[in-house]
Amino acid sequence: MSRFAMLAAACLMLAACGTTTPTARPQPPSSAAAAEAGYPVTIRNCGKDYTFTAAPRRVVVMNGGSIGEVSSLLALGLGDRIVANAQSYGASDEPGWVEAVAALPSGGFKRTSFNDIPRESMLGLRPDFVLATSGRQFEPRDGFATREELRAAGAATYTPESTCGVGVRQDQSIEDSYTLLRDLGRIFHVSDRAEKLVAESRRRIAAVSAKVAGRPRPKVMLIIPGMSMGSNAFSSIGAKGIWNDIFAKAGAVNAFEHTSDDLFTNLSKEQVAATKVDAVVIVDWLNPDPDAEARKLFAQFPHWGRKYVVLADSAYVAPNNATAVEKIARVIHPEAF
């Protein structure tokens, strides 16, 4: 598996949140005493309990291929707690988010072949909280510090429950994004902010679902051009993952959901051509021209519809899945808006 494939497999998970644009240096809580009033807090994550006696102040965010985790922290107003961030997706569906992420400290370390934080650099950063996209980022064979080593060094660790291992749980949904926000809200004693984001996300998604209710459900394909996840020509087509819930909320179905039990399906051009596709979701991952990728697909498959939408970070577990739902619904059900 290529380095890019491993990054992608580690990352895909998303959530719905409001339109809040994160700032690179949000204001901390009004006072340390107020921030610590709600402690101790115990969070169970990936089978282990982590007890916090105060809000973490030296946070390190590992890469994983998305900006879902770091944007969740920023949306919650916690950017000032980050001492090193390795997440940089290169694109966002929200104005200002790329710039906000780029303004965070990078830590100044030499990255691993997976474009992430190596063990010695991680321990040298002296974190008290490490936020990762998946359990893969704590694998010693890949050059990372383990969760046990970090615990011994005084750092709690967290990864979304749907990606505790090296893969992604098949039934991943937008609720996983809400869980991420709520857990971070409890850890940092900003649950009120988390609940506001969740409530706004639910409101936006419910509004879309109401508009598309009862309408025919087009078949949609999600693909990440330029990413290889297998040996066939089309190995980065989404099968299982959070996007299936996003599609459902937008009034669509995944045309390739049942072709694999994995996150991605691995198909030949002939297999793809034989599948009915009404619209395409192009995921913009380090892509200089995602619109050109859509044109290339339609040239190969002229019998498909010509509808497509470009998404970036809102297709994973993150604080802006509502944006993905809205954008997809407007493309496949324009008559409803």
Score class of each variant (00 low, 15 high):
96 G>L: 11
30 S>L: 15
29 P>N: 06
32 A>S: 12
106 S>E: 14
107 G>M: 13
105 P>N: 06
20 T>A: 12
48 K>W: 09
26 P>D: 02
26 P>Q: 06
43 I>V: 15
100 A>S: 10
40 P>R: 03
85 N>W: 05
76 L>A: 05
43 I>D: 01
92 S>N: 09
22 P>Y: 07
68 G>M: 07
98 V>T: 11
106 S>V: 09
98 V>S: 02
47 G>P: 14
60 V>H: 02
57 R>L: 05
59 V>C: 02
52 F>N: 01
108 G>H: 14
58 R>Q: 14
49 D>K: 08
81 R>C: 00
82 I>L: 07
49 D>H: 05
21 T>N: 07
53 T>G: 09
48 K>V: 15
85 N>R: 09
70 V>C: 05
53 T>I: 05
50 Y>W: 15
102 A>C: 07
81 R>K: 15
26 P>K: 10
34 A>D: 09
96 G>Q: 03
77 G>Y: 10
48 K>G: 11
108 G>L: 14
30 S>V: 15
45 N>A: 14
108 G>W: 15
52 F>L: 05
53 T>Q: 06
81 R>N: 09
66 S>H: 08
46 C>G: 12
63 N>C: 09
29 P>G: 13
23 T>H: 08
87 Q>H: 06
71 S>A: 12
47 G>Q: 10
91 A>I: 10
44 R>T: 12
37 A>F: 01
68 G>K: 04
73 L>H: 08
31 S>I: 12
96 G>C: 10
48 K>I: 15
50 Y>G: 05
105 P>E: 04
93 D>S: 10
21 T>Y: 00
80 D>Q: 14
64 G>W: 04
26 P>L: 13
23 T>F: 07
101 V>E: 03
61 V>F: 04
62 M>F: 14
84 A>I: 12
85 N>C: 13
31 S>C: 15
39 Y>T: 03
100 A>G: 04
91 A>N: 09
40 P>N: 08
35 A>C: 11
22 P>L: 00
107 G>D: 11
38 G>L: 01
26 P>G: 04
43 I>S: 00
81 R>W: 00
99 E>L: 12
83 V>F: 10
72 S>F: 00
80 D>P: 03
66 S>C: 13
106 S>R: 15
43 I>A: 00
99 E>Y: 10
54 A>T: 13
22 P>S: 08
90 G>E: 11
35 A>R: 10
92 S>L: 02
78 L>D: 05
75 A>T: 14
56 P>F: 03
73 L>R: 04
85 N>G: 12
36 E>P: 01
49 D>Y: 04
103 A>D: 07
59 V>T: 09
61 V>M: 05
54 A>R: 15
102 A>R: 13
26 P>W: 11
20 T>N: 10
67 I>A: 07
27 Q>F: 02
96 G>E: 05
61 V>L: 06
56 P>G: 06
100 A>F: 09
68 G>I: 03
39 Y>S: 02
76 L>V: 03
101 V>S: 03
71 S>Y: 00
38 G>C: 05
56 P>T: 07
